[in-house]
Design a protein around this nucleic acid. Structure first.
Lengths: 228, 228
DNA sequence: TCATGTTTCAAGCGTATGTTTGAAACAGGT
DNA sequence: ACCTGTTTCAAACATACGCTTGAAACATGA
C-alpha cells in the first residue's frame, strides 16, 4: 500500500482488524476477545495484529479512543445546535434537550454499535481500570463531562453545582447499564415476560429520556415546566 | 474440626478464605483475584481453596450468593416495615420509602462492603455473564425484582407496568454504577475538584435517594405539585 | 490408640494466551 | 530491476493461571 494510505486510513489489513475488533468487542465483551479468535475473524494472520498495533492493549486503545471521539463529537454537535436555538429564542436550554444531546449518540440508527461499545468500555473501566482505559477517560471524556455539566447547570438551574455532579454521574451509570441490556433475551426482557421490548430503539429512546428528564427534577413549582 | 462446625460455619480456614475473598473482590475486582494471591492473603495454602470449595467459580458462587441473600433479605425486611406502616395509615407506600428500601442495604454503616461487592457482581454479570453469575441472578435476585416492582407500582401509580420495568432497570444501573465510584479518588471526586465527596455516606445516601425519587416522577399534580 | 477429617508443602501438570521469530511471498512505486 | 513496506505462515516462546498430586503433619472425637 502507498504511504498516503497507510498514514490516513491504514492498509486493508489494518482496517479489517479494527472492524473485526469492534464487532467482537460488542459481541463478546472486551476481555472475551483473544488475539487468535480476532485474527481468525478478521481473516488475518496473528502476526499482522502485532505488526500494526504493537500489542493487544494498544489495539483496544485505538479502537475505543475512536469510539469515544465519535460519541463526544456527536454530542458536542448536538449541544451546539441546542445552544444556538435556545440563544435565538432568548431562553436557557431545556433539560429535555440537554438529555437528548447525551443520549442521541447511542440510540440513533446510523451507528447501532456505538452505544454498546462505549457501554462495554465504561463498564470495563469500572470493573478493571487499566492504563489504556484511564488514558481514554482522561484524554477523551473528562473535558466533555465538564462542558456537559455546565450546560446542564443552565438547564436545571434549580440544582446546585454539587447536585449536578451527582446527577450527571448517576445518569451516566443508568445509561451505560441500560445499553448493556438491550437484547431481546436480556434481563429486563425476561423479567417483564414480553411486556417490554428493549430492542425496540424507539421505545428505548423514549423511556430513557423520560427517566432522565424526571431524574433531573422539575425544580420549584414556579417553573411551570413541560414534562412528558 | 468437628462435624458440627464444618456444617454450620465451616472451619477456620474456610472462613479465612471467604473473608479474604470478600476483601479482595471488593478491592481488586472479581477477575483481579488469582488463586495464588488469595491463598497468600488468607494465609492459607492454595490447595486448601480447592479442598473446601472445589474450584474458583464455586468460591465466587458461594461468596456472592451470600452477598445477594443478605442484601435481598435486608430489603425485604425494610419493605415489610414500610408496608405495615402504610397499611396502618391506610395509604399506599411512598416512592421515597420504596426507594429507601432498595438503597438502604448499601449505604448503611454496618456492612460497608456489601454495596461495592454487589455492584462488582452485577457489573461482572453484565460485562461477562457466566454460569455462576446467571445462577445467582436466577435464584437470588429475579424473584426479588418482581416483588419490588410490584410495590413500586403501588407507590408510583401514575406509571404503567412497562414504565415501572424500565425505570426499575435504569434505577438499578444508576445505583450499581454509583457504588463502583465511591472512593475519594474516583471519577466524580476528581471531576468535581473537591466539590463532591462520594465517600461521605450521608451525602451519598441523600443524593442517591433524591435522584431516584425524582426519576420515578411525581405523577399528576396530586402531590401538591404543579399541573401536568 | 485409632480413625477421620483438615491443612501444609512444594512441585508439577495442562492449558490458554500474548507475543516473537525468521523465512518467504507479495505489491507498488521509483 | 530494485527497494520498501506489507502479509502470510507455522512454529515456538514465555508466562500466568487453575488445578492436582502425594506425602506428611496436625487435630479431634470415639
Amino acid at each position: 500500500m502507498t504511504k498516503i494510505e497507510s498514514l490516513s486510513l491504514g492498509t486493508a489489513t489494518r482496517t479489517a482488524i479494527r472492524n473485526a475488533a469492534e464487532e467482537m468487542y460488542a459481541t463478546y465483551g472486551i476481555d472475551g476477545v483473544t488475539t487468535r479468535a480476532l485474527a481468525e475473524r478478521a481473516k488475518v494472520n496473528m502476526a499482522a495484529i502485532n505488526y500494526h498495533f504493537g500489542n493487544k492493549d494498544n489495539l483496544m486503545l485505538v479502537v475505543f479512543r475512536d469510539v469515544a471521539r465519535r460519541t463526544v463529537q456527536r454530542r458536542l454537535d448536538y449541544m451546539a445546535r441546542i445552544d444556538a436555538q435556545a440563544l435565538g429564542e432568548g431562553r436557557p436550554p431545556r433539560i429535555e434537550e440537554v438529555v437528548e444531546a447525551f443520549v442521541d449518540a447511542y440510540v440513533n440508527e446510523d451507528s447501532p454499535r456505538t452505544g454498546i461499545l462505549l457501554a462495554h468500555f465504561v463498564l470495563q473501566h469500572r470493573v478493571r481500570p487499566t492504563e489504556w482505559t484511564r488514558q481514554i477517560v482522561r484524554e477523551e471524556l473528562d473535558d466533555f463531562a465538564v462542558t456537559y455539566m455546565a450546560m446542564m447547570r443552565r438547564a436545571a438551574s434549580h440544582l446546585s453545582e454539587a447536585e449536578i455532579h451527582w446527577r450527571y454521574h448517576l445518569m451516566v451509570g443508568a445509561v451505560m447499564m441500560s445499553l448493556s441490556d438491550q437484547s431481546e433475551d436480556g434481563r429486563m426482557a425476561q423479567l417483564s415476560e414480553g411486556l417490554v421490548h428493549p430492542e425496540d430503539r424507539t421505545e428505548f429512546r423514549a423511556q430513557l429520556i423520560a427517566f432522565l428528564v424526571d431524574s433531573f427534577g422539575r425544580g420549584p413549582a414556579t417553573h411551570g415546566d413541560i414534562k412528558d
